[in-house]
Structures are given as structure tokens and as C-alpha cells.
Design a protein around this nucleic acid. Structure first.
Lengths: 244, 244
DNA sequence: GTCTATACAGTGATAGAC
DNA sequence: GTCTATCACTGTATAGAC
């Protein structure tokens, strides 16, 4: 049916093309059924390629799974990471972080779900990421929260568990989307639902901010509407990491 | 190895016994790998019973899965449900709800994970529960939040999305336990971790409470330490629904 | 009622034609 | 490089012995 556009003559190009298509399909299938539950045949159908083709490119189901996970982990932190920084006030940083995480849940729900699957299965295949990269990441953020607190910008809070709540609330809009949508009487969440979610999460997480109108932060940042023009430098960096 | 105590002579009794053992084992295995990923053989090993025995009791893998889900859903709402009620102030009710949900995540993490698995897979097998029971449940809670708001007891908040955040934050301590533990440098979360989690979640969710010292609520309820003696009636009801 | 032996479909992987 | 045909194996389910 859906032929892959036109077959290019350039050698190596189809491989590159197919590799991406396979990874996209793999992310979709693995995110629904996990590693053990997913079947290569389903992935093949999802990217309209012969089953054996997939094994030709990736060698084995295990390797394909690891490649899919790898691509996911690269983008997981990079996107929202920068917002928790001493360069921002808590009000600005938290809003940027939450908006960024929610955008991720909305645009790449499969990535979030695949990660959840791996955690449910024990997380052995992301052990190194969890034990080193992520742990150090959280330690760095603790420094920022400590700084904010000492500057009188935010209430005392356990920064680690606070990060846990931010992750769980934002990722739930991907992982538990089926449940949320059912409660709201829809088949899928729409943009307005995500905006409502952002408002609610900001209302809760933002409660730790003490800056009624602090020096370097204009009052309108308290309005929960982030001014992107002021953060264009960071936004550029974010977009750069989006693909590949 | 671990023989099932001593085989009872009473007819029908072993069936009852085995049925529970199988369901416990099924919950464990299904919660790790989901329906598609779990294998009956693994469940058989987990409850030290022959593989065919399981199919004899439940007919098919599908039926066993549905039975496991069913048992789970019964307890999911009943436990913490009562706390969101006009009988309580927001401060008391939210604390009771959060503590109850966190106790569930701690004592029955597999149940929470199995539910998450089902959601990730599309939730078709809990569709009826999501569309009717859960949806009505949330609608009832909205009435309570509305009442609280009109009484000046809590800040205006989207009650539905607020419930979403409560679910996600508390259940994450079961579903993402592997991740949280790794960040904290442990193999598993301990009691102190859960207490820290409760404090943090209370700090965020409690921010919607406006009762500095309202009429019918003693001041110490603001201390985030719930006095169980005052809620013994509700506690009884909760325990009644715990088993079966 | 319980469990061993086995039928049968599905799944990951490979050999070899194009 | 790509894909069809096939293999070896695992997993669900059942028939029938105890």
C-alpha cells in the first residue's frame, strides 16, 4: 500500500531512511507492549517493511530495543534540563521546566511510555543511566534549589522528591493518557487538556516560589504565562537537540 | 522446594487456596511484563504450581489476567476514596487521601504497576471501569472541591486535573520506584523515603488549602500529622474493604 | 480433582534467492 | 543490499493418565 515514496538510487541512503522508520515503529510498538510483549512482526507492519529486513538492520530484537531506548534517553534530560538553573528565578525556571516536560509528553508520548515500560520491567537495561547520569543530574539540581532557598526565592523543599513529583505529574499526561482522557470523556487528550494540566501543575509546584516580585524577575512572570522572547537563547538550544 | 504447607483433605479448599496463590503470582508477573509479555510458565514457577494447573483453574491466560485486574480494581478506589469528602476539611481530607494512596503504593506496588501496564497497552480491558466507575467517581469529587471552595476552605482549582496530579504523584512511588531508588542510591525505597515523599506531596497539594485555623478544624491538623483516633469510623470502613 | 504428555500456533532468527 | 522461504524453539492450550 503505502510505498516509501520513491526508492533512492544513492547507496546507503535507504539504510539510513529505513533505520529511522524502523526506530519510530519500534518505539511505537515497544511503548505499548514492552520488550517481552512486543513482536517483531508488529513492528514490521507498523513501518511497512518485511520482518527479516528489521533483523537485517539491527541484528536482533534485543539490539533494536536497546537502540530505541538509547535514542529516547538522549532526549529525555536535554529538553527540559536547562530550566532548573541559577540563571533563572524559581518561578521562571519551574514554568519553563514544566512546559517543556508537558510538551514532551504531548509530542512524544511513546517515548515516555517506553521508558515507563522499562522501569516496570525492572530497568536493568537503563541501569547505567539511572545510577550515574540521572543521579548526577538530580544532584546538580539540588545545588540550584539550595541556591534558590538561600537567596530567599523558594521555600525549603526536598529537591530530590520535588523532582520526583515534577517527573510523575508531567509524564502521567503521556503514560496515563488513556485514563485521563476517559475521565474527561474523550478518546484522546487535546491541547486544551494539556494547558489545563500545565496550569494545575504550575499551581502546585509554583507554591514553593516565594518571589512575590523579586528584583530580577518582572511581575508578569507570576502570571504563569512564560515570555519566550526572553529565553530565546535557551529555546534555540532546545530545538537543536530535538532531532537526532 | 517450598511445599505449600500441608495438603488439606477438605474438598474445595485447595482450589480456594490455590486460586489466591495463583492470583498473587499472576499479579506479580503481569505487573512486571504486562499481559502480552508475561508467560504462564513464569506465573506457575512464582506460585510453585504446575503450569497446567493454572489453566485448569482459570481456563485461559486471558481469563486469569481479567481476574487479576478485577481484584485490583475493587481495591483501587475504595481505599482512599472516602477522604475526599465534605465531612472533612481539605487539609484533613487531602492528607488522609495522600497517606492512603502512598500506603497502597508501598504495600501493593504490583497492583499499581499492573494497572499502569494495562493503561500503556491501551486500557481496553478496563474501558468500562474508566468510562463509568472512575469517571463518576471524579465527578463526585468535583462536588466536594466545589463545596470546599464555596466555603472558603480551599483555593480555586480544576478538581479533575488536581485528581490527576494526586494519582500520578502517589502512584509514581510504585510505578517509578526503580528510578526513584536508583536516584537515591538504593536498591529499593525504604519507609523513610515514602515519608519524605508524603511530606513533599503534602507540601504541594496542601498549598490549595486556605484554612489557617477554620472553625471545625483543630489547629493541629495543619501539622500534616493525621490524628487517626478522630477518623476511626472511616478507618473501619477502609479495613472492611481491604480483603476480598 | 490434579497433573503429565503432547498437539499446534506463533515467534525470533537464518539461509539463500533475487 | 534486499527480501522470500524456512527452521528451531517457545508458549498456549488440551487430552487423557493418575
Amino acid at each position: 500500500m503505502t510505498k516509501k515514496a520513491d526508492l533512492p538510487r544513492n547507496p546507503g541512503v535507504p539504510r539510513r531512511n529505513n533505520t529511522q522508520q524502523i526506530l519510530n515503529a519500534a518505539e511505537k510498538i515497544f511503548s505499548a507492549y514492552g520488550f517481552a510483549g512486543a513482536r517483531i512482526d508488529d513492528i514490521a507492519k507498523a513501518c511497512d517493511l518485511p520482518k527479516a529486513n528489521i533483523l537485517y538492520y539491527f541484528g536482533s530484537k534485543e539490539e533494536l530495543y536497546r537502540a530505541t531506548l538509547q535514542r529516547l534517553l538522549v532526549g529525555w534530560l536535554a529538553d527540559a534540563d536547562q530550566w532548573i538553573s541559577v540563571k533563572h528565578t524559581p518561578a521562571v525556571g519551574l514554568e519553563g521546566y514544566i512546559r517543556s516536560k508537558m510538551a514532551f509528553s504531548r509530542s512524544k508520548p511513546d517515548a515516555s511510555r517506553l521508558f515507563m515500560h522499562e522501569l516496570l520491567a525492572g530497568g536493568e537495561r537503563v541501569r547505567a543511566f539511572l545510577d550515574s547520569t540521572l543521579r548526577e543530574h538530580v544532584e546538580q539540581k539540588a545545588v540550584v534549589f539550595d541556591y534558590w532557598h538561600k537567596q530567599g526565592l523558594c521555600a525549603p523543599v526536598d529537591s530530590t522528591h520535588f523532582m520526583f513529583t515534577l517527573w510523575s505529574m508531567t509524564q502521567a499526561y503521556a503514560d496515563m493518557q488513556v485514563q485521563f482522557a476517559a475521565v474527561l470523556g474523550r478518546r484522546r487528550l487535546n491541547i486544551a487538556d494539556f494547558e489545563k494540566g500545565i496550569s494545575t501543575i504550575l499551581q502546585l509546584a509554583g507554591s514553593i516560589c516565594l518571589t512575590e516580585a523579586t528584583a530580577d524577575t518582572p511581575p508578569q512572570t507570576k502570571q504563569l504565562v512564560h515570555d519566550t522572547t526572553k529565553e530565546s537563547k535557551s529555546a534555540e538550544k532546545r530545538n537543536k537537540n530535538k532531532r537526532k
